[in-house]
Design a protein around this nucleic acid. Structure first.
Length: 512
RNA sequence: GCAGACGUAGCUCAGUUGGUUAGAGCGUCGGAUUGUGGCUCCGAAGGUCGGUGGUUCAAAUCCACUCGUCUGUACCA
């Protein structure tokens, strides 16, 4: 026995997926709905390429030792490092900066595309995924942040989500900055600790108040025994932060009636500062704007516990969260978290231009949304009907032209149709193919039908239903269930009628 | 990145203290049925036991390393 030749193993790089017809159709449907909302709000599309020079993307500068940490990078032929984009915000900042003299501000723009992250993949977490962003560049007022929140809420409903199935949560980074300042972490050299406090607060959903206390204090050990170092804050300061996280609304924390006073115990001991005041006042303004526009707190909720880890946010931050249970393939309920978020980033364009260009915007995680919506049955993935199959009984030239003509007549009438392209001599295989492909109808014309100027149309869906009642194969074959004989001239009309009937049946079943 | 679990046919999984030719179900393909899907029956193909190295007369089984998957955690611009 000869050794097998070493075959090359076909394999997908980890963290990447092939997308099926179903996935692609679902994505198209979803992005079309999102786009419609953005357009209605007066946003215009822009597209930037997948690659950018690495230094333009942000914190990975050319002198970084590992340009592939977190991003996928390659070296151009002139030795410059280029990277695949890891979000759509940094490329937008680059585009705006490069064209700042031509762009009419405020610039309202949206875009969707693939982004890439070179990090550990997990279930529902890939190294290539799609985002769909909207941003307003050059508008400093919180009214544009309020608009973003309302637009996100409208997107959720355009996707078919009902009140109570989602919520847009809003906070202001200045409030958190104010807290940091008040507890003595406002200085330059406390950047790292500040960041760790924010990260700890961000875990409130996951670990609850107790977990956050540990992370802000002495540190936390997880189930596997791995230890996360704590920030080591004082008890009183941790109390204040937990009060913020546990608050359900602004009114729980602050009294606006007489200047600005804190209502809760630990917060009251902190001294107010400019950041605090600006943060709370901006949040109040956003709240007033969206409430007056008719968005109640079941759609847009002012929630001081929203953090968002990103360092570049400078003001309002917001995220869209799904409130219904999402189950995975195994049927377990998974913590789904947010499907989109954003905020104000006033410093991003300044990096390139030196000019103050305020901006705010958000990103929707299309891939994650699809997973969740599929689960909820909100994506009509089964409404693409497989083609009508024209079977082949005579494979000579004359026969093939006849069958091909039928197919073209059907196509011209707008019916999805195809001629069997496999080995026509095994007729059983043709119907088996049609069955597995979920074809609604099969068109059959052999020499007998041909001589009589007739065609047989087999309803494969009805036939499948009838098969349950027939047990022996001879009867099954000879009774030719759900099959009609028609005149050649009536082919297109009859096919359309039968398809329409099947469609009605489907509607009825869906309603039942 | 850190910690743990796991890796046997396309899929789901058996495989005894290390011992002949590594099995089953499902799926795939062929036939019964050369002009009719499903059911039933018969038959076949399909395996570097994740990879490499080691211990041993002998390794799917034990050891080391490595790759991959899953869980938790960290990071997530």
């Amino acid at each position: 026995m000869a050794k097998k030749p070493n075959k090359l193993k076909a394999r997908l790089p980890r963290g990447f997926v092939d997308r099926t017809a179903e996935d692609i159709r679902a994505t198209d449907e979803l992005t079309a709905k999102i786009r419609e909302v953005y357009e209605r709000y007066g946003f215009d599309p822009i597209e930037t390429p997948a690659f950018e020079y690495t230094d333009c993307l942000g914190k990975f500068l050319p002198d970084t030792d590992r340009p592939n940490a977190g991003v996928f990078s390659v070296q151009d032929d002139d030795e410059q490092w280029m990277s695949l984009r890891y979000d759509l915000t940094a490329p937008l900042a680059r585009h705006v900066s490069e064209n700042i003299n031509e762009i009419q501000m405020p610039y309202r723009t949206y875009r969707n595309g693939w982004v890439f992250r070179n990090e550990k993949p997990g279930p529902g977490r890939f190294r290539q995924f799609m985002q769909f962003d909207a941003d307003t560049v050059g508008a400093p007022g919180v009214q544009s942040d309020a608009e973003m929140c309302m637009m996100m809420a409208d997107v959720m409903e355009a996707l078919g989500l009902k009140r109570g199935q989602y919520v847009i949560r809003v906070n202001n980074r200045k409030i958190l900055d104010g807290v940091m300042e008040a507890i003595g972490l406002g200085g330059e050299d406390d950047t790292e600790r500040r960041l760790n406090v924010l990260r700890g607060m961000d875990k409130f959903d996951k670990f609850g108040a107790e977990g956050v206390r540990l992370l802000l204090g002495v540190g936390r050990k997880d189930e596997s025994g791995d230890f996360t170092a704590g920030v080591g804050l004082a008890e009183a300061h941790i109390d204040a932060i937990v009060e913020i996280l546990e608050a359900n609304s602004l009114d729980d924390l602050v009294d606006y009636s007489d200047g600005l006073t804190f209502k809760t115990k630990a917060l009251s001991t902190l001294t107010a500062n400019d950041n605090f005041e600006a943060g709370f006042n901006e949040l109040k303004l956003i709240s007033d704007l969206v409430r007056t526009a008719g968005y109640d707190k079941d759609r847009i909720s002012i929630d001081p516990s929203v953090v968002r880890g990103l360092e570049y946010y400078t003001g309002p931050v917001y995220e869209a969260e799904l409130l219904f249970d999402v189950t995975n393939e195994k049927g377990d309920v998974v913590q789904f978290g947010s499907v989109g978020g954003g905020g104000r980033y006033d410093g991003l364009v300044k990096r390139f231009t030196g000019r103050d260009v305020p901006a705010t915007g958000f990103s929707i995680g299309v891939s994650r949304l699809i997973t969740a919506l599929k689960n909820l049955g909100k994506l009509g993935t089964d409404d693409v009907i497989a083609p009508v199959l024209v079977t082949v009984m005579d494979g000579d030239t004359e026969g093939l032209t006849r069958y091909q003509k039928m197919v073209q007549d059907l196509r011209a009438a707008g019916v999805r149709a195809e001629m069997y392209q496999g080995n026509w001599k095994k007729f059983g295989n043709q119907l088996k193919y049609a069955d597995r492909r979920d074809c609604p109808l099969a068109i059959i014309q052999g020499s007998d039908e041909r001589a009589a100027g007739e065609i047989q149309i087999k309803d494969l869906i009805e036939g499948k239903r009838l098969s349950a009642e027939i047990e022996d194969n001879v009867t099954w074959r000879e009774s030719r269930p759900a099959q009609v004989t028609i005149k050649e001239a009536n082919l297109v009309d009859t096919v359309k009628t039968l398809l329409a009937q099947q469609d009605e049946d489907r509607q009825r079943q869906r309603e039942a």
